[in-house]
Design a protein around this nucleic acid. Structure first.
Length: 554
RNA sequence: GGUCCCGUAGCUCAGUAGGAUAGAGCACUAGAUUCCUAAUCUAGGUGUCGCGCGUUCGAAUCGCGCCGGGAUCACCA
């Protein structure tokens, strides 16, 4: 907000320079206004003079002097200086920072939200695990990441729809049914042959047991695996949605791949591509001519057996997303799906939709360590750690926080020992404690009965400590930080913002008293209470935007 | 072999529309609490930003080439 205002001022000065013949307009849009990394280098800094120096072939410091002349007249500017190779450092008047508090408090729960999204309809598709077993930690990362992205997009004015895409047919499911049947027979002491590539998890036995409970041994001679598959899918889905619910995630829709077949979308996609000359037959299979679209090789979309490969329903599914009126599709996928992305995008484009409206967030794997050693995971062998187990161990907030603390591109190391034993030195609690601490102070203030929290009557100019100005700057930058995290689809940025905020706040708390019974200064305390209330709002809104709790006591 | 991601402090990681002296947490050491919650704070860092070359006023960041780790390259999903 302040940055935008200052940017306009700087741009205006630049134009004045152009008009008065000091420099040409060639540097327009090329310079930037940013927050310097180091203290003492101003609230903001612009590299305008250096950028112009290259273009105008002049000494950057001389140009900087001219820039300063123009900026000096601005009323929000306190001080200006030329630094380093030609930066212009801008120091703003403290009043500028004091003035952020009142609007922030007035905005309340809305503070930090924005409308940059313009109500754009965006679908976030994530998890999309087929029902073959409980959610593993890898799914957990995706679930948390997808949900956090969705929440951030909501906070920035997007119309968000969460969807889970799944397939409960095909080979995978047959194996699942066969595995269940084998366990069923085993539990009834019958001869059973467990499939070689079957699912070995204990949950399969539970499913078999539920069939025994309901139907006894009546399925022993069933030649069909369907009853087993159906029961398995039903129970596993119940388990998955329960887990998601425990993580605080609710989908707007579960989309079954089957509807694409039932409604004829698969066929119509093939037909449409065929009409465009992008489909041909070879070796009894049907191929998608992706080489015409700049790819290295063509891909099979319908196998010899007559069954489509995954590509075809995927393409049809994306067309449906567009047809349903979404104009931005965000797909959160594990990096193992990387090879599927170009084919789907090619399909989307061939069908006349804009592939730029599809954004794929690929996240790397979660590596699990226990006793300092990496744990290898496989769903089939059931040597994975489930989200349920982790939720039991560390609780939803810690799990969520850890899983979104890293950028999606990085592998994420989840140290089981650390997560379970290290309860206190946890960044989650560090941030949450920041909030709880403020709540405690505010309770204290209320009990005292002598303080009031009202930014319109408080003398905010009493907030003169450098730490106080720093906190005000943090508050001021909150909306922009959220916007940045949202548009970059990078929840970890919001996490880092909160950790830095908490660091500044805890530091301030230890150095200065908000309420000091030994040295009662009502005016100062009232001003500080306004500051802390603003901070509380930022903590609360920030935590909640990421799906985390903001506890009032700890 | 092709494509994508990663390589930054002992460990886990931030840091891209190129910016000034490269950061945080953990771990380790020494301190701080009669009073707003010590789940906190303060002080302590000599890092080939994997290596090399290039682009330019300026590179962890951009380009090219290597090295190392991971993912992926089906008529599986």
């Amino acid at each position: 907000m302040i940055q935008e205002r200052l940017k306009q001022i700087v741009d205006t000065c630049f134009l004045q320079g152009v008009e008065s013949g000091k420099w040409s307009d060639k540097a327009a849009g090329k310079y930037s206004l940013e927050v310097p990394k180091r203290e003492g280098q101003g609230d903001y800094s612009t590299n305008m003079a250096m950028v112009m120096a290259g273009i105008e072939k002049k000494n950057p410091r001389e140009i900087a002097a001219s820039v300063i002349e123009l900026l000096e007249k601005q009323d929000i500017v306190e001080k200006l200086e030329i630094a380093g190779p030609g930066f212009v450092n801008i120091f703003l008047k403290p009043k500028v920072w004091h003035d952020v508090l009142q609007p922030a408090l007035a905005a309340g729960a809305e503070f930090g939200k924005s409308s940059v999204g313009n109500n754009r309809k965006v679908m976030v598709e994530f998890v999309s695990a087929n029902p073959t077993g409980p959610l593993s930690i890898g799914h957990g990362r995706q679930a948390i990441l997808g949900d956090a992205i969705a929440k951030l997009l909501e906070a920035t004015g997007h119309d968000v729809y969460r969807e889970y895409y799944f397939n409960d047919a095909g080979r995978q499911m047959r194996v699942l049914g066969e595995s269940t049947k084998a366990r069923y027979l085993e539990l009834l002491n019958r001869e059973a042959q467990f499939p070689e590539d079957g699912y070995q998890g204990e949950y399969i036995r539970d499913i078999a047991q539920s069939l025994i409970d309901d139907k006894g041994d009546s399925l022993v001679d069933s030649p069909d695996v369907l009853p087993f598959t159906e029961r398995a899918v039903e129970l596993i889905f119940k388990d998955i949605s329960g887990t998601l619910k425990d993580m605080g995630i609710v989908f707007d829709n579960y989309f079954n791949e089957h509807t694409l077949y039932d409604d004829g979308h698969i066929e119509s996609v093939v037909q449409e591509l065929r009409d465009k000359g992008l489909v041909y037959e070879k070796d009894d299979a049907t191929w998608f001519k992706t080489t015409d679209l700049g790819h290295e090789q063509d891909r099979v979309i319908i196998k010899k057996t007559g069954e489509p490969t995954y590509r075809l329903p995927d393409i049809a599914y994306h067309r449906e997303k567009f047809r349903r009126g979404f104009d931005w599709l965000v797909n959160v996928l594990g990096s193992d799906h990387i090879a599927t992305v170009p084919d789907v995008l090619a399909g989307v484009e061939a069908l006349g939709y804009d592939p730029k409206k599809v954004t794929v967030v690929l996240h790397q794997f979660v590596t699990l360590t226990r006793n300092g050693k990496q744990v290898k995971m496989s769903t089939r062998k059931a040597t994975f750690v489930t989200v349920d187990e982790l939720l039991d161990l560390v609780g939803p907030d810690v799990l969520r926080f850890y899983l979104m603390m890293r950028k999606p591109d990085s592998q994420l190391e989840f140290d089981l020992d650390l997560a379970t034993s290290q309860e206190k030195d946890n960044p989650v609690y560090y941030v949450q404690y920041g909030h709880a601490r403020i709540c405690s102070i505010l309770r204290r203030a209320e009990e005292s009965g002598i303080y009031t929290i009202d930014p319109s009557t408080a003398d905010l100019s009493l907030l003169q400590e450098p730490e106080e100005l720093q906190l005000l700057k943090r508050i001021a930058s909150f909306p922009a930080s959220i916007e940045e995290a949202a548009l970059d689809l990078a929840p970890h940025r919001a996490i880092f913002f909160l950790m830095e905020l908490a660091g500044d706040w805890h530091s301030y708390y230890n150095k200065h008293k908000v309420i000091d019974p030994e040295n009662i200064d009502i005016a100062v305390t009232n001003a500080r209470l306004c500051l802390v209330t603003g901070l509380q709002q930022v903590f609360k809104n920030g935590l909640e935007m990421l799906g985390l709790n903001a506890p009032e006591r700890m």
